[in-house]
Nucleic acid binder design. Structure first.
Length: 472
RNA sequence: GGAGAGGUAGCGUAGUGGCCUAACGCGCUCGCCUGGAACGCGAGUAGGGGUAACACCCUCGUGGGUUCGAAUCCCACCCUCUCCGCCA
C-alpha cells in the first residue's frame, strides 16, 4: 500500500513512477484517490468540529441539571438560549452559554420545557454526527479500495522498460551439459521411470493434477529438506505455518484485491488456501511494533502452494511446470529501511547457492519496471536450465517490497534512538520451488540408459542412493 | 459441539451511566541524589487521524443498538481460559 500522504504531496511524481510500470488502470486511479482524499478531509473537519462541541455540551448537561447554586430561572434561560443557538447550528454560542462564558437572556419557558427543548436539540446534533460519520465511512471505504489497487513503486535502480522481454539476464552459472543423445522432457522421463503419474492425478483432481510416486516423491521430499537446511544454516528460523488464512492476510500480503482469481477459497470456513507461504509469513508480525534490536528477522517455511492458474489457462499445460498445487520453501526477511537492499542481494545469493549445491545451470534475471508485479519495488528471478523442455525455468523470485506489505499488515519497528515507530521493510524469496527443481534434476541428470543420477548433495537425504533406476 | 469465566495501554490489574481527558503496580526512559552504583525522590512512558504547528477527533476484543452522554446497559459475532463431549 502506498502512503496516502505521499500521493497527496507528490501526485505528479507518483504518477511518473506508475507510468514506468506500464499500468494504465492504476495510473487512472490516482486522480480519483486525490479527490476522495479531499472529500474525506473536508468531511472530517466538519464532523470533528461538531463532535468537539457536542463533547463539551454533554459535559455541561449534568451540571445544568444538578447544580444547586443555579436558580430555576437561570437554568431555564441557559437551556433555552443554548437550544436556540443549536437550532441555528451556532455551536460556539451554545458552548459559551452552557459553559457560562456568556450570559443567557431571561426566558418565559419553564425549566422543564427549556431543558426538554435542549435535549431535543442535542439529540439532533447527535443525529447529525452519525449522518456525517456514515458519509466519512463511505468515502473512506471507496478511498481504501482505490489505494489497495495501486501497485508498489519501483526502486530507482530498477531498469525502466515496458515488458518482460527486456528483463536483463545475467551470465549463466554452472555448466550447461551437452548430450550425446536426445535429452527427454520430464513429461516423458517421469512416466518412463514410473515416478510421475499424470493420468491418475487428473482422474482424482482434474486438469494439472499429478502424482509423484516412489523416487519422484522421495526426490521432492529430499529437496525440501535440503532447502530448509540450507536456509537454516544461513540464519533463517524455520516455521511450520497454517496452510490457510483469513481474508485480511490476503490483503496484507498484497494478494487481494487484485489476485482474488488465483486463490482457492473455503466459503464455509471463510478461509483462503495459501498461494505462497509469503502470505502467512508477512502476517506473522501483523499489528506489531518490533524493536530495532530484533531486526533483521529471517524466517523460512515449507508449505504447499495452491493456485487456480485461471489467468494462465492453456499455458504450459504439459508436465508439472505450471500446476494447481506445488511445494515451495520460502525465505522471508523483516528489516530496517537502511539494510533492505543489501538483504535483497544476500537473499538472491541464498537462492543461487542452492542451485550451485545441486550443480544445476542457472542464471539471475533482473526484472524491469514493466514486469515488476504488484508488490515489489525491486525483483530478481532465478532460472534453471531445463534441457528437455529447452527453456529456462523460474525456480525463485526474490523481492524487496519495502514498506508495501508492512503498511498493509501494519508492521512497524521502534528505532533504538527514541524516534517514532515506523514501517519495516519486508523481503521474500523462494528457496526454492519444486516441482520445477524436480524437472531440472530429471532433465539435467538423465543418462543414455534412461536412469537419472542423483545430485551428490541430495544423496544423504535419499538413503545414500546415487541413481534413480531406469526400469521398475 | 455444550456449560462457565474472561478480553482495559509493553505486562499485571481497578473501574457497574457524567468527577474516565481511563487510575494503580511492575517494567522501561530521563533527571535528582552518589566517588560510582543500589535504595529513595521527581518526571515521562499506547496507537491512529488531523494541522504549517497547535487545537481537536477516534480507539477499553469487533460490529450494531439504547442515551443528551457508554469501558460501564442491551444484541450479535470473534478470540482466550477451565470443565464436558467427539477426535488424528
Amino acid at each position: 500500500m502506498l502512503d496516502i500522504n505521499l500521493i497527496r504531496e507528490k501526485p505528479d511524481w507518483v504518477k511518473d513512477q506508475i507510468r514506468k510500470l506500464n499500468d494504465a488502470p492504476a495510473l487512472a486511479r490516482v486522480d480519483n484517490i486525490l479527490e476522495l482524499d479531499r472529500q474525506r478531509r473536508t468531511l472530517l473537519t466538519e464532523v470533528e468540529a461538531i463532535q468537539a462541541a457536542r463533547n463539551r455540551l454533554n459535559k455541561q448537561v449534568g451540571r445544568l441539571r444538578g447544580d444547586k447554586s443555579l436558580s430555576a430561572e437561570a437554568r431555564a434561560a441557559t437551556a433555552a438560549a443554548a437550544s436556540d443557538a443549536l437550532e441555528r447550528a451556532d455551536y460556539a454560542a451554545a458552548v459559551a452559554l452552557m459553559e457560562g462564558e456568556q450570559a443567557a437572556p431571561p426566558t418565559s419557558l419553564s425549566p422543564e420545557v427549556a431543558l426538554e427543548s435542549l435535549m431535543t436539540a442535542l439529540k439532533g446534533m447527535g443525529d447529525r454526527v452519525n449522518a456525517l460519520n456514515e458519509q466519512v465511512k463511505e468515502v473512506e471505504g471507496r478511498l481504501d479500495e482505490q489505494v489497495l489497487w495501486l501497485p508498489n513503486l519501483p526502486h530507482d535502480s530498477v531498469p525502466v522498460a515496458e515488458s518482460e522481454a527486456s528483463n536483463i539476464a545475467w551470465p549463466p552459472e554452472g555448466e550447461i551439459r551437452t548430450f550425446d543423445f536426445e535429452p527427454k522432457a520430464h513429461w516423458d522421463l517421469g512416466p518412463a521411470l514410473d515416478i510421475i503419474d499424470f493420468e491418475r492425478g487428473v482422474k482424482m483432481a482434474g486438469s494439472r493434477a499429478y502424482v509423484l510416486k516412489s523416487w519422484g516423491a522421495r526426490l521432492q521430499r529430499a529437496l525440501i529438506s535440503l532447502f530448509l537446511d540450507s536456509a537454516r544454516a544461513k540464519g533463517f528460523t524455520e516455521l511450520y505455518l497454517p496452510y490457510f488464512v483469513a481474508e485480511p492476510m490476503m490483503y496484507g500480503a498484497g494478494q487481494f484485491p487484485k489476485f482474488r482469481d488465483v486463490v482457492y477459497f473455503d466459503p464455509d470456513a471463510e478461509v483462503y488456501m495459501l498461494p505462497t507461504a509469503e502470505v502467512a509469513i508477512t502476517n506473522l508480525h501483523r499489528d506489531e511494533i518490533l524493536d530495532e534490536a530484533q531486526l533483521p528477522l529471517f524466517y523460512v517455511a515449507h508449505t504447499p502452494c495452491f493456485r487456480r492458474e485461471k489467468m494462465s489457462a492453456g499455458r504450459d499445460v504439459r508436465g508439472i511446470k505450471r500446476v494447481h498445487q506445488f511445494e515451495k520453501v520460502e525465505m522471508y526477511k523483516f528489516t530496517t529501511p537502511e539494510t533492505s537492499y543489501a538483504e535483497l542481494e544476500s537473499l538472491v545469493e541464498a537462492a543461487s547457492d542452492i542451485c550451485r549445491a545441486l550443480k544445476l545451470p542457472f542464471r539471475r534475471l533482473e526484472i524491469v519496471t514493466g514486469d515488476l508485479g504488484f508488490s515489489a519495488s525491486k525483483k530478481y528471478d532465478i532460472e534453471v536450465w531445463s534441457p528437455g523442455c529447452n527453456e529456462w525455468l523460474e525456480v525463485s523470485s526474490c523481492s524487496n517490497t519495502e514498506t508495501f506489505q508492512a503498511r498493509r499488515s501494519n508492521i512497524k519497528y521502534r528505532p533504538t534512538e527514541g524516534k517514532k515507530a515506523q514501517f519495516v521493510h519486508t523481503l521474500n524469496g523462494s528457496g526454492l520451488a519444486t516441482p520445477r527443481v524436480v524437472i531440472a534434476i530429471l532433465e539435467n541428470y538423465q543418462q543414455a540408459d534412461g536412469s537419472v543420477v542423483i545430485p551428490e548433495v541430495l544423496r544423504p537425504y535419499m538413503g545414500g542412493a546415487d541413481r534413480i533406476p531406469a526400469s521398475v
